[in-house]
């Protein structure tokens, strides 16, 4: 996964994997690989649960990580 700090974050392909720490409806608190927490919207990953990793781009989760397509 690219490190957002090294890349242009606007690039359509820059996104980071984050762990869902707490989900409340479509709002969640997630943590990145360094443990940094931030608010993330989960509208587009309705099945993602606390303890799962999701791919986050600009505060919005776009995919579950590790669920084989």
């Amino acid at each position: 996964m690219p490190n957002a700090s090294e890349n242009c974050t606007t690039c359509g392909d820059t996104a980071v994997a984050m762990l869902i720490l707490q989900r409340d409806g479509d709002d969640a608190v997630c943590a990145d690989g360094d443990g940094k927490r931030c608010a993330v919207r989960l509208d587009f990953v309705p099945c993602a649960r606390t303890g799962e990793s999701v791919l986050v781009h600009f505060g919005v989760a776009l995919a579950r990580v590790g669920t084989k397509a």
Binding site: T10, G12, D13, A15, F44, H57, F58, V60, L62
Partner: peptide, 8 residues
């Protein structure tokens, strides 16, 4: 942005 960014 591309389709990655448009959803947000």
């Amino acid at each position: 942005g591309f389709e990655t960014t448009a959803p947000s």
